[in-house]
Nucleic acid binder design. Structure first.
Lengths: 260, 260
DNA sequence: CGCATGTTTGAGGTGCATCAAGGAAGGTGG
DNA sequence: CCACCTTCCTTGATGCACCTCAAACATGCG
């Protein structure tokens, strides 16, 4: 890629490269401890519903139990950015949203969210190491996916970005279909997806058409997507392997791309 | 901006827009509790030094005490992305770095870092609410800045990105100079900065020249930067006000842009 | 049906990347 | 001290990936 030798700053990067391979068992997803539910308010969300980020002054914590939420940020004089997609098990705190920005937590489809004061959650964590561990892992997973998202926005071309999103959705909400593909709801419109990927909706539509023509994804009714060739899709996203590992390999190995 | 009426998904966004203004005192920075230091290994870093993300198998926590660090991620087949800049007070855990990626924690200049096992830090947090609160705030600040970074990469044009970085550095490491500007070390080369902003180094150089010509920043020796007109700089970054608030307004109000 | 909302596709423009050449700074040996 | 080299930065010319605009096409709902 670089025509000449590596620069010094690039050479530095390799030093701790082997580290991530050694993490091991910490990455298997920890289930949401039921004890949290006794202290939380249970919210049922509908498609498009916006949740207030702070509900009575104090800092608030949200735990996604079902469905998909998006965290959206609109800076003054700039277009909206969908900062994150939140899947079941994810934890969000109201202070994760930057100040002086229009922030919104929006449910993409029907779902269930637990809401509680951060102070109450901290108290639970202090008394129960399992809850502490769950929260630590949820935050780390969120942070790691945000880092991948930053790399996606900063370095990927438009096709790589779209492939990355489809891999992410397939891993978190997809189910194997009898036809051999992976099917999942697409509870966003094109504009939402474009704002997540930092693309133009028109460009996004073109990419999707190209992926359909290539046989990677299939035609399907509105608001659903079918992945016909997951390995081909994953090969188009540099972040695929990382996302697969973060998602905890809930999916059978057969549908994953073979290493190498 | 939009020629017709707002779309439904955009209209949703406004619902909890007022929330961030009500956060209040939680945003004043909490100092690093000294008790953590007794349990940590103190590392002194030099410019360009890479820190191993995990040092003996367990999950590791890092607390920046002095200097600036960068977290860099290189996905296979993609260019490097500098995911985050870490300033004094920031907390990083080894699992914040995505798996299956070349991740590196690199010191940008001379600094001091505290390193310890996550388990030990969790134990401290469970026994001391002040430490719990410090960690909560550090994680929230990191997450909020990552969200702003995502918005920067996804929505800003190149000049807005550069302005955002300069505001960030001025707030965290800048000192008022006798000449009336804000001066700070620039402990990165052009390639590092470009990789943080998702730009090309050539483009970055052009922007800097343009900002110099406009009188916003001044000429200065290598590895230093001078901001001559902070309000003009802040007005070029949609994220400026958010960053100012996150940084805890350590700087006097006089050099901040007036609200409006 | 008629309208509103959302998607697709084409034509054309532009912002940024790429390539290449020249310049400044710092280090090394004579 | 200067010549020389390496590294990094700057700046111009050129091209392409993606954005913008606009029109046609779907889809859902009263």
């Amino acid at each position: 890629m670089a025509s000449s030798a590596k620069t010094r700053s690039e050479a530095r990067s390799g030093t701790s490269a082997l580290c991530s391979a050694a993490k091991g068992p910490a990455l298997t997803p920890v289930p949401v401890p039921a004890a949290i539910g006794y202290k939380a308010t249970i919210l049922r969300t509908r498609r498009g519903q916006a949740l207030a980020l702070c509900f009575d002054g104090g800092e608030t914590a949200f735990i996604v139990r079902a469905g998909v939420l998006t965290l959206q940020v609109t800076l003054p004089g700039s277009a909206r950015q969908v900062v994150a997609m939140l899947f079941p098990g994810d934890v969000l705190r109201s202070n994760f949203a930057p100040p002086h920005a229009e922030s919104a937590l929006v449910s993409a489809g029907a779902g269930e969210v637990w809401r509680m004061r951060l102070a109450a959650l901290d108290a639970l964590a202090a008394s129960d190491p399992a809850i502490q561990r769950y929260l630590d892992e949820a935050v780390a997973s969120r942070m790691a996916r945000l880092a991948l998202h930053a790399a996606t926005l900063g370095q990927f071309d438009c096709e790589q970005r779209v492939a990355t999103l489809l891999v992410e959705l397939a891993l978190h909400t997809g189910v194997n279909s009898p036809g051999g593909g992976i099917v999942f709801d697409l509870p966003f419109n094109r504009k939402d997806i474009a704002d997540y990927l930092g693309l133009n909706p028109d460009t996004l539509s073109r990419i999707m058409s190209r992926l359909k023509a290539a046989g990677v994804i299939g035609h399907s009714e509105r608001n659903r997507a079918v992945i016909r060739d997951f390995p081909a899709l994953a090969s188009r996203s540099p972040a695929a392997r990382s996302l697969i590992e973060i998602s905890g390999a809930r999916r059978g190995e057969a549908s994953l791309p073979t290493p190498g």
